[in-house]
Computed example of a mutant assay.
Amino acid sequence: MNASRMITFDMIRELREFANGRNLITSLYLATVPERGDFVERANRMFDDALDRLERFDYTERQKESVRNDIAKLREFVREVLPAEVKSTVPFVVKGIAAFSSTSRNLFRVHYLPRPLRERLVFDYTPYIRPLTLLLDEYKRYLVVVVDHKKARFYEMFMGSIVDAEKLVDINLKARFKSPPVRLKRAYNYLVAEHLMRVVDVIDMLMATRNYDLLIVGEAKPVRGQLQLYLPFRLRQKLAGAFVADPTDPIERILNEARKIEIEVEKAEERKLVEELKRRLAEGELAVAGLRDTLDALMHNQVQTLIVAEGFEAEGVRCPKCGFLGVDEETCPSCGAETYKVRDVVDDAIEEAIEQGVGIEHVIQKELLEGIGSIGALLRFPEMQEAEQ
């Protein structure tokens, strides 16, 4: 089994390569947050339903047997392995999984998620990876650099996980220079400056070639504040923050300090986004708020960015024929069919936004959206009748 708490575009590309048009791949998305109840029971219902659906498809018996084996493996994983993983909080609390299995292709991969995605089980010739792709777009990828007077370590941080990226040791800086005598101070300072400039060169290369969004710097006390002085303007613009650390510190401490900065960045961006939403609402520009108006805009393909308070749920209705989503309409305003109730229309709205290629922002600071219904959207264009006036 291949399990990971970090998702990269390379991993998604590898998943795509398993598709060959002949073998079926089973994709499972499962939420593990307590407020949704026992995830093992929900998963078992999904597995049983999938086995029933499988028999209605015109697949070969060999293909069906592969899917049955996939479901058996996934069922065992959810029952035997996942409960312990959910209890772990390092490097983040697991709030969901995306799992992919194909017995005929020798594939079984599990990705732990920092927030739940819509639950579903799909078997098809290609892995269902669109939700993961959107999740990648939603989170920023950080280059974390920890430096002292002669060493530097480079980490990649994404979605609450951190891994080693590069390591640099300047052998010109001998141990005797740790506390240099006065006569060697100038030489020592020169070598430290040379080392820091080499570190900046590596930062520049990594930021350019690996497409990191932001930079976080950890500096040992003897060089605190010095690395930032050598950063060119284009890198200073990417600097999210700095903290005190040593390259020999445990990776858990590095992650903890870097996450503090990441959380502050996320909060600031959330505030900026919600402020823009409220400004547009106040000035009558391209924005809506509240469940009814947001669903209406989504149904008219007006939404540019859907903004939802983390964990917000609400009952609603759905049309079985055209997929219309609403709050309480008994008949569909689009095709006239009778609607049916859904437990969480917000989840359906997020799925519809995914299908439309709409940007989705989950706001962790729920209080920012409390006064406007916990959901809203920035629009691409106004309603047609408004635009024609």
Rank of each mutant, 00 (worst) to 15 (best):
M1D: 03
T8F: 05
I12T: 02
E14K: 15
L15Y: 08
L15D: 10
E17L: 11
I25L: 00
I25T: 09
S27Y: 07
Y29E: 12
G37I: 07
D38I: 05
V40A: 09
R45P: 03
R53I: 05
R53G: 07
E55W: 06
F57N: 15
R62K: 13
S66D: 09
D70N: 15
K73Y: 01
E76G: 13
E76V: 11
V81N: 14
V81Q: 13
P83E: 12
F92R: 00
V94C: 05
V94P: 03
V94M: 00
K95M: 13
A99H: 01
A99E: 00
S102A: 11
T103N: 12
H111N: 11
Y112G: 01
Y112P: 06
E119W: 08
R120S: 15
V122M: 13
F123G: 01
F123V: 08
Y125G: 11
P127Y: 06
R130F: 08
R130W: 00
T133R: 04
D137L: 13
E138H: 04
K140Q: 15
L143Y: 00
V146E: 02
V146A: 08
R153T: 10
Y155H: 12
S161M: 03
V163E: 15
V163S: 08
R176V: 11
K178P: 00
K178M: 12
P181H: 07
K185I: 10
Y188L: 03
Y190H: 12
E194C: 00
R198E: 14
D201Y: 06
M205S: 10
M207W: 10
M207Q: 11
D213E: 07
G218V: 11
G218F: 08
K221T: 10
R224K: 13
G225D: 10
Q226L: 14
Q228C: 05
L231G: 05
A240Q: 04
A240Y: 04
G241S: 09
G241F: 11
T248Q: 11
I254L: 14
L255F: 03
E262L: 04
E262K: 14
A268F: 10
R279A: 06
R280H: 12
L281Q: 02
E283V: 05
L286R: 09
L286I: 10
V288Q: 03
L295Q: 04
L298V: 12
H300G: 08
H300R: 13
N301C: 02
N301T: 09
Q302E: 14
Q302V: 07
L306I: 04
A309K: 08
G311N: 09
G311I: 07
F312A: 10
E315H: 12
C322I: 00
F324K: 04
V327G: 02
D328K: 15
D328V: 11
E330V: 05
T331D: 09
C335E: 02
C335R: 03
A337C: 08
E338Q: 09
E338Y: 06
D344G: 02
D347F: 07
I350V: 15
E352H: 06
A353W: 01
I360D: 01
Q365W: 06
L368M: 10
E370G: 05
G373Y: 03
G373C: 11
I375Q: 04
I375Y: 08
G376I: 02
R380I: 10
F381G: 05
P382G: 10
M384E: 14
M384A: 15
Q389F: 05
